[in-house]
């Protein structure tokens, strides 16, 4: 499946407290969370973002708390995928588990800027920047993770293998 979207680019160490501040964790409703997505960094993000848009970031994206509310808010805000130089461990797991595509692609991050239009092939991790026509290949997922993605997330995987 291919997505095309506008890029919102952020720096290193974007933590889960700016992605979804703690004061909103009295709700786990994806729509409510989406309304406050990235609020700690960019209070207008939720009104600017459109379906299919892409977040591009530096290293250690999603550091800090284990709150699954962070990838949930990004997914519910319509973002199609996140491309970063590296991800914090728990955020990475959570994204795979809930079905938010995440790609590790340092060279892509270097060559993509805010406002660019990128095309991403979710299955292969092939990323194309339509503004400068450069293309990048994200790191491949380990086999086991591919299976979780194929099943449609960890809950579907667990259902299939244990029930």
């Amino acid at each position: 499946m291919k997505f095309e979207g506008r890029v919102f680019k952020y720096s290193d160490n974007i933590d889960t407290d700016v992605i979804i501040p703690g004061r909103y964790l009295n709700s786990s409703d994806p729509e409510v969370l989406a309304a406050h997505c990235m609020e700690g960094l960019d209070s207008k993000f939720s009104s600017k973002v459109e379906k299919g848009d892409v977040i591009v970031a530096g290293s250690n994206f999603g550091s800090g708390s284990s709150r699954e509310h962070a990838p949930l808010s990004i997914k519910a805000s319509g973002v199609s995928c996140v491309i970063a130089k590296s991800f914090a461990r728990i955020f990475y797991r959570n994204s795979i588990n809930i079905g938010l595509p995440v790609f590790i692609c340092p060279s892509g991050v270097e060559n993509i800027n805010t406002g660019d239009i990128v095309e991403v092939d979710i299955e292969s991790g092939y990323i194309k920047n339509k503004n400068n026509n450069k293309a990048f290949q994200a790191e491949k997922f380990p086999l086991f993770i591919q299976e979780i993605i194929k099943a449609g997330g960890l809950i579907a995987y667990t259902k299939k293998h244990y029930c």
């Binding site: 728990i90 797991r93 588990n97 809930i98 997330g153 809950i155 667990t158």
Partner: peptide, 18 residues
Amino acid sequence: TGVGSTDLAAAMATGKLW
């Protein structure tokens, strides 16, 4: 180690995690 809610859910059902 910290995990997310979905990890916790799967482990509550199976007693295992990756």
